[in-house]
């Protein structure tokens, strides 16, 4: 700083000390809140996960790793892990794939790009809980739009070529949300429906950064087909976007809660098939006041999410273009 360089040393020290004090008072509120609201709760969760604490009790007993043992031995929690990972493993690749597909299609169009973009982005903006209730009506076994649409296909060729339709027409179409074979997939579908527009927008932004010349160069090098051009130019150029999109989709998918709570306020779906981690934390920790077990789930959850983010940062720092 030019001003400081020209001043005598005594004043420099003084100014520096002043700047230091000002800086600390400016960062103090943020610092205090970060510690109190973010770090302290992480510590609290970690400590309480080794206890049998309940709200309203004066004290608690240390019970070692019993909470964690329970998480890894009881079938309820096995179902919780299965539901959570099924959701994440389904929703992330499909919503990223659809986002990329939609972005590529829209980007290659001359007209109507903005309209498609706007419409696909609507679910990202809409209150998920309200849309979950709208979907619940759509999926209503008798008056819902989906089963009514499917019934229109009865008696046509579709019935002959698609076994699902044949059984549906004969014995009635599925009770989507009440059937353990379908429940988790319906929730996944809504997750994809809600999230792919977000990924699409990120990919569209990424695509504007791909240089035209690269395509010409690839064509000169013999990449004739559209697929070759995509594989050689577009996909590598979108590498950083993909890393980011996958991470954020994972973190969002891990946090699924609104749809599950709206559809099954008690107990996480038919046969606990949609008992995801956020719902388990809510049910065990808040509703049933089993803080210890809720904290243990919280700790595992944090480990998953932090691990994912660290992988992403590591990939970004290495500037991986695969």
């Amino acid at each position: 700083m030019a001003v400081i360089d020209t001043t005598p040393p005594g004043i420099t020290n003084n100014t520096q000390a002043q700047e230091c004090r000002a800086a600390w008072s400016l960062t103090a509120p943020a610092l205090v809140l970060m510690v109190a609201i973010l770090l302290l709760p992480v510590m609290v969760a970690l400590v309480l996960s080794f206890t049998n604490y309940s709200l309203g009790n004066d004290g608690f007993d240390w019970i070692g790793t019993k909470n964690y043992d329970r998480l890894f031995s009881r079938s309820t929690y096995e179902k919780m892990f299965i539901a959570t990972f099924t959701y994440v493993v389904t929703v992330v690749p499909i919503s990223v794939g659809l986002g990329l597909g939609a972005a590529l299609l829209i980007n290659s169009l001359g007209r109507f790009r903005e309209i498609y973009k706007t419409i696909y982005f609507l679910p990202v903006m809409a209150t998920l809980l309200a849309m979950a209730i709208a979907w619940e009506f759509m999926l209503h076994p008798s008056i819902g739009m989906i089963n009514q649409t499917l019934e229109m296909g009865c008696g046509t060729v579709i019935e002959a070529i698609w076994p699902f339709m044949a059984t549906g027409c004969a014995d009635g179409f599925p009770v989507w949300l009440g059937d353990k074979r379908y429940a988790i997939w319906v929730v996944c579908f809504i997750g994809i429906w809600q999230g792919f527009g977000f990924n699409m927008v990120l990919y569209l932004a990424g695509l504007t950064g791909v240089h035209r010349e690269l395509y010409h160069a690839a064509e000169m090098d013999g990449a004739k087909s559209a697929w070759e051009r995509f594989r050689l130019v577009t996909w590598p150029a979108l590498g950083p976007t993909t890393v980011f999109v996958v991470t954020i989709s994972c973190i969002r998918a891990f946090q699924v809660f609104d749809t599950i709570e709206a559809f099954w306020p008690q107990g996480g779906g038919p046969n606990k098939s949609t008992y995801v981690m956020m719902f388990a934390i809510f049910e065990k920790g808040v509703q049933q006041n089993l803080i210890g077990i809720g904290s243990a789930i919280t700790v595992l959850f944090l480990i998953f999410v932090m691990f994912l983010t660290l992988i992403q940062r590591w990939l970004v720092e290495r500037k991986v273009h695969y």
Binding site: A45, Q255, I291, M306
Partner: peptide, 10 residues
């Protein structure tokens, strides 16, 4: 790294 929803319980 810490999503606030994740530490909702504590």
């Amino acid at each position: 790294l810490i999503p606030v929803h994740a530490i909702a319980l504590p």
